[in-house]
Design a protein around this nucleic acid. Structure first.
Lengths: 156, 156
DNA sequence: GTGTTTGCAAACTTTTTGCATGAGC
DNA sequence: GCTCATGCAAAAAGTTTGCAAACAC
């Protein structure tokens, strides 16, 4: 992942420039946060991590929107209704997520658990039965993370 | 699915009653919508479908919240940042979702594409390496649905 | 220098909450 | 009849937008 991440630090600015967008402070700040963390973050979480640089929330929204449009970010996950963003698989490699049901924390899990055979079979199946063309997938594993298992919550 | 759905129409009211909650108009209306439709809906979408019965949005929010707490509904999916709800797998059976990247529509896909062997292996793997106990999973297949493929959008 | 991008504030949307009235058991 | 639940309206939270000033190129 680190080789790809290094690549991203070069190629993402290039992509911005090549499409006529500028590499500004807020955009750099948002990208830095997402380079360093291998977990999807909400706008609020991103904003919290760039506050030192006095970046406005509106700018975070706009940066995230732009980076999504450019295919740099993807809407990774939205545990309990908030959209979360991370570098797209083009930069991080294909991977899945571990999501804690208790605290909502998300961790990356490198690699794919689905075999090519299974994917090909389901592709054919839904193409015929639903007229739906599959172009990608997203697998989330839910459960309880270590810290939460150690401090069990009482029933509500 | 229809056998289970019939079961849900009986067992869900029972579950409400057994925990001291009442089977009220708004709650019935929300449940009816979700019984009939095999796709996750947002609060706004649920509300649109119960408007004839003059149910307030606030009541839809409260009903959805309660039904989630009771394990009757689950947060199924949140394509583009809005939370969507559907009957939990206890009532619908284990299934996955087809999600159209173009229009955001979600369809159910019965059955599971992951083998027991794969699930057991990953369970062991993340238990050891991450101290994470997997209790369930969610697989989403992204792509283009028939209608959207027929009416391609011009590039932005 | 020029045109894009930002910060700020205001508008807008979505979700939550308080309280008097109405409905389920 | 006794509560719990709803509707309404207001508040809170989250997101988008217009515009003058600031900055990347």
């Amino acid at each position: 992942v680190s080789a790809r991440a290094a690549d991203a630090r070069v190629s993402i600015p290039h992509r911005l420039a090549s499409r006529g967008f500028r590499l500004t402070g807020p955009r750099k700040a948002v990208l830095e946060v997402l380079f360093d963390l291998s977990a999807p973050l909400s706008v609020a979480e991103i904003h919290a991590r760039v506050k030192r640089r006095r970046v406005n929330v509106a700018s975070v929204y706009r940066a995230v929107q732009l980076l999504c449009d450019l295919g740099v970010l993807s809407t990774a996950d939205t545990s309990n209704g908030v959209a979360r963003y991370e570098l797209s698989e083009e930069f991080t490699g294909h991977h899945h997520h571990l999501i804690c049901r208790e605290c909502g924390r998300i961790e990356d899990l490198d690699g794919c658990l689905l075999t090519h055979g299974v994917l090909a079979a389901v592709n054919r199946r839904v193409q015929r039965s639903r007229n739906f063309r599959v172009t990608g997938h997203d697998l989330r594993l839910y459960g309880i993370c270590g810290p939460c298992a150690d401090t069990p919550k009482p029933a509500p």
